[in-house]
Nucleic acid binder design. Structure first.
Lengths: 217, 217
DNA sequence: GGGATTGTTCGGTGACGGCCGAACAGTACC
DNA sequence: GGTACTGTTCGGCCGTCACCGAACAATCCC
């Protein structure tokens, strides 16, 4: 490990625009170059060059479809890396302004964090799983199976914790977290709001989750 | 979490000199400003400014003694953050030159990685612990206690894995890893070589470890 | 085909930041 | 006191890099 290598990697995230791209991509979906440019408020040409750097740096993966250039985070490892960085660069705990606080609170009610559930919803589910003693490999596997979730084995650890930087609490990540999120969305228990990471728990989802997880508050 | 915040944090490590500082500090010891300047090959004035940035950025902590300015990594969290980054910026596997390879191999025989053992020694010990079924909270606690290691409870997880970027293998970190490393050095089972991270296993240490851990190869 | 949309390439510009050396301040040792 | 050493401040230099707009290429739709 040499210092220039580390510096080069860090330099990829050391720019506001590229950082905004990566944070936007934390929802696990593929964005087009134009969407990212608009999201970050830069010209398309600028975004194009940034994407080149992030791609050759190995942080992003691309997929071309027609005239569109879709990019996504290269791997879950990249997502956790950015998440760890973001958690460390946590904002100073200054609740400034009621309006801003209310907006932030609404946004953090339920959202996805890369490929699993986060926000208050993610934290509460995780807490309930913990109280029910389900937060270990075998119990969570059994629980997800009874739910009907598709739990395909991968190289990722089954149960992993992910620190939410707004809630400052752990929530379920790893293969189990991803499977749960996929299932919740597929069953219509929650649905995405707009183009961001925010999701909304549906009435059906609330019923289903309460039934499957009685310790949920 | 905003993009500028993430970018600012990443920018701290996006410079070769600052990256070299942080990597040097990964041995967990406190270095003086002059030592770091010589290590990175820059003027003292340059090092001074870099240290200011790393300090205000929260990555480093300082302690002034007389005319000396000692700096160290601010917390274990910072160390793991840098470690994760370094693991991701892994060098391409190019064994170039016999001399370089031999040197690197000697350096990676045994060394510290922040506050625990790494290199081939760290990996082998971890593997032996795994074979002996000791890589869980209770077993490792019992094993360390019989060794006489001082295992004070902390906020850090007891058992944590750390990916060695030269060996590409896991080794024991966390509270248990730190306690083991401290004990091994205190008992004279290994001793530091020079001012770097390298350590050398002593004959006494080899005997003691083989006795305590029969699965060690 | 023509027109609209998406993305890329290229030159030019401006700002930021790393670096040094010289001068200075503070500490240790004789 | 004087000397040596460590660290800091300041001015100035220079390279890098993010940004834009304009021109161009590629695709899709009518």
């Amino acid at each position: 490990m040499t210092a220039p290598q580390l510096a080069d990697l860090a330099a990829l995230l050391a720019d506001s625009t590229r950082a905004a791209f990566c944070l936007a991509l934390m929802d696990g979906r593929a964005w087009t170059a134009g969407e990212l440019a608009r999201h970050a408020g830069v010209a398309r040409s600028t975004a194009s060059e940034h994407l080149d750097r992030l791609l050759t740096g190995g942080l992003l993966a691309e997929e071309r479809q027609g005239r569109h250039r879709y990019v996504r985070l290269a791997s879950p490892a990249v997502a956790t890396l950015i998440e760890d960085l973001a958690a460390h660069a946590a904002p100073p705990p200054r609740p400034s302004g009621l309006k801003a606080a209310a907006k932030a609170s609404a946004e953090s009610e339920a959202r996805t964090c890369y490929d699993h559930l986060a926000g208050r919803l993610g934290v509460q589910i995780t807490e309930a799983l913990s109280e029910a003693g389900l937060l270990a490999d075998e119990p969570i596997r059994a629980w997800l199976t009874t739910l009907g979730a598709d739990l395909r084995p991968g190289r990722r650890p089954l149960v992993r914790m992910c620190l939410d930087w707004t809630e400052r609490r752990n929530h379920l990540a790893g293969t189990a977290g991803a499977a749960l999120c996929t299932h919740v969305l597929a069953q219509g228990w929650a649905e995405r709001i707009g183009t961001g990471r925010a999701v909304r728990l549906t009435p059906a989802g609330e019923r289903a989750l309460r039934q499957a997880l009685p310790t949920l508050t």
